Simulated scan of single mutants.
Amino acid sequence: MGLIRRLRITQRAMERAMLGASLRDQIRNEEIRRRTRVNDKAQRVAKLKWKWAGHIARRTDGRWGSKVLEWRPRIGKRSVGRPPTRWTDDIKRVAGSRWKQAAQDRGFWKSLQKTYVQQWTSIS
Rank of each mutant, 00 (worst) to 15 (best):
A95L: 07
R98V: 10
V117I: 09
I56W: 09
I123C: 01
T10K: 12
R44T: 15
K49R: 09
S66Q: 02
R33I: 03
R24A: 13
A103E: 03
A95N: 03
L3V: 04
K77Y: 12
T121A: 09
G65C: 11
P84R: 13
T10F: 06
R35K: 04
P73A: 10
K49N: 01
K77T: 14
A21W: 03
G54D: 04
S122K: 15
T121C: 11
R28I: 05
R58F: 10
E15S: 05
R44E: 15
D105V: 07
R5V: 01
T88F: 00
S111W: 08
R28H: 14
W71C: 06
R16E: 01
I27S: 00
K100A: 04
D61V: 02
D89N: 08
R12D: 05
L3S: 08
W120M: 10
A42N: 09
R74A: 08
Q101D: 14
K49L: 09
R82Y: 06
R58Q: 12
I27Y: 00
Q119S: 08
T121I: 07
H55W: 01
A13E: 04
R58H: 13
I123H: 03
K100N: 03
P83S: 10
S97E: 12
E30M: 13
R33Y: 02
I9Y: 07
R44C: 14
T88N: 01
Y116W: 15
W120Q: 10
K77P: 07
V80N: 05
G96M: 09
L23N: 15
R24S: 08
D40A: 12
L23E: 13
Q26E: 05
R24H: 10
W99N: 04
T115D: 14
R44D: 15
S79L: 13
R106P: 04
G20T: 00
